[in-house]
Each structure stands twice: as C-alpha cells, then as structure tokens.
C-alpha cells in the first residue's frame, strides 16, 4: 500500500527519470498488402518487465518480433515508422541485423534446443559472436548462464548429454540460458510458458522476475494472471492497435479504456 502511494506521488517524476530502452514511434507493419500494426507509439522503460496482452491476432507477437527484426525473414513484410533501441532506429539502412539480434534476444513459445549437447547449446551464441576469450572463459560463461537460467544444478553433471533428452520445462530454461549467455540488453519472450505444465511455469516465472535487475524484458502472454504476476508494465493490443499502456497495477485495477476493461474482465477473449 505504501508503495502505491509513493508511486502515485512520484508518478510524473518517475516517468521522466526512467530511461526508455525501446520506443516505437508511429510504427506500422504490413504483411504484404495486409496491415498488421497501426500507428504504434510505445515507450518501454529499461530494466523492467513489460507484458503485451490481447486476444489472438491482435498484433502483439508481430510487434515483439519487430523489435529484433525477426519479421525480416517473412517474405513481403514491410515497415513504416521508427523503432528505436536506445535511441537508435533499428530499421535504419546502416544497421547490422545480426549484431542487433545479439543485443535483443528471443525465447519462443515452443522450446527450441539445438541438436547438440547442453553445453554446446548454451555456448553456441557465445562462440558465434566471439564473446569468449578462452576455453575456460567459455566454460565460465556457460556456467553463469545456466545458473541464471535456474538450470545449473540439474545439469551440471551431464553437460555433454544431448539437450533433446531434457524435459519441456528444462528445455525452455535451457533456451533462456542460451539467450542470457550472449548478454543481451533486451529479452523478448513469446508466450514462453504456454506449452508447459504449472510447476515448470512457476519456475520460469520466478526466473523471469529475477531478470528485471539486469535486462529489459518484454513478454507476450495470453494468460492475464501471468501478466499480473510477473510484469511491471502492460500494453493491451487489439486488432493491430495499442489500446492502452501503463503500469500493470493500473491496467488491471483502474484501466482508462473501456476496451481494456472489457478484455480483462473477460467480456471477450
């Protein structure tokens, strides 16, 4: 309660003091002739967890994938407007997409371990980007990443086993560790828990909550309770438009827009 009062009082101050990591400005996205995102304007603060919520097909995944330009591989995709990462437009002609993707990591809905050993999975991004100075340094990075991913204790004795032998929840934590190993600034998560059982989900949510100290996290989720559990800020999307973006607490207790209220009370889904 005290936290709430303080937050309200400092609201204006906080908003201007918090550094903005990602900013979309008049951002439009097209799949060929079909427009998927309409005039998105959003400011994501750094070192926080933001949730994108909304019904299926509302564009939240499209926006997420625009932040690391993963949509580039879709034929016919087109972008208008600006997407700024630390005040640099990532769609500028001079931008190296490969380097961008090292700074903006992504975890997918279905866990995607590579057909390699657990160690090699985590080491892959590190090796590709030349981040390790020596074999020993590489081992340290892998261990650190697995610890951050809450997987170290379970796999430390079998790092050379195939990653495909892990359970679904373990594989997803491996994917998170793999992303953390390249030390990104931003981590994008596209419904990371939707394919997992509740216990695995809980473990991963705990892990995500710890990430806010060092990383800017954006998580797309269908599960509104998950958004309230995990995120600091929430953006509600509908039919390609951003309806409302605010602190999670406000969105779920005192939303400004009627459509937001309708969605979170389950009037439509």
């Amino acid at each position: 309660m005290e936290k709430n009062i303080l937050k309200e009082a400092n609201e204006v101050d906080n908003k201007t003091a918090t550094k903005i990591e990602i900013e979309a400005s008049s951002f439009n996205f097209f799949y060929g002739a079909k427009q998927a995102l309409y005039n998105i304007n959003i400011k994501i603060p750094e070192k926080s967890i933001t949730a994108f919520i909304g019904p299926s097909g509302c564009g939240k995944s499209t926006l997420l994938r625009s932040i690391n330009r993963m949509n580039d591989i879709v034929i016919g995709s087109r972008v208008e407007g600006k997407m700024l990462l630390n005040e640099q437009d990532i769609y500028a002609k001079s931008v190296d997409v490969v380097a961008l993707r090292r700074r903006v990591g992504m975890v997918f809905q279905k866990s995607t371990p590579f057909p390699k050993s657990i160690f090699e999975n985590v080491a892959y991004g590190v090796k590709i980007n030349g981040l390790a100075k020596s074999r020993k340094h590489l081992q340290e990075i892998v261990e650190q990443a697995l610890k951050q991913g809450a997987l170290w204790d379970e796999v430390k004795d079998r790092l050379n086993d195939s990653a495909m032998a892990l359970s679904g929840g373990q594989q997803q934590r491996l994917c998170i560790a793999r992303t953390l190993a390249v030390m990104p600034e931003v981590i994008l998560m596209d419904e990371p828990c939707s394919a997992l059982d509740p216990i695995a989900t809980e473990k991963i949510e705990q892990l995500i909550a710890e990430l806010r100290e060092k990383y800017t996290v954006i998580i797309v989720t269908h599960n509104m309770q998950q958004a309230t559990r995990v995120s600091d800020y929430t953006g509600f999307f509908l039919l390609g438009k951003l309806i409302e973006f605010d602190e999670t607490e406000k969105i779920f207790t005192r939303p400004k827009e009627k459509k937001t209220e309708d969605y979170i009370t389950g009037r439509f889904g």
Partner: peptide, 15 residues
C-alpha cells in the same frame, strides 16, 4: 526442421 529452431539460431545473432 521446425521454423522456430531456425529462428532461435537467428535470434542469437548468427548469420
């Protein structure tokens, strides 16, 4: 090979 495995590789900054 699932599309997402390929995307996961790209997402790590691999050419």
């Amino acid at each position: 090979v699932p599309q997402t495995v390929k995307e996961a590789g790209l997402a790590l900054g691999a050419p």
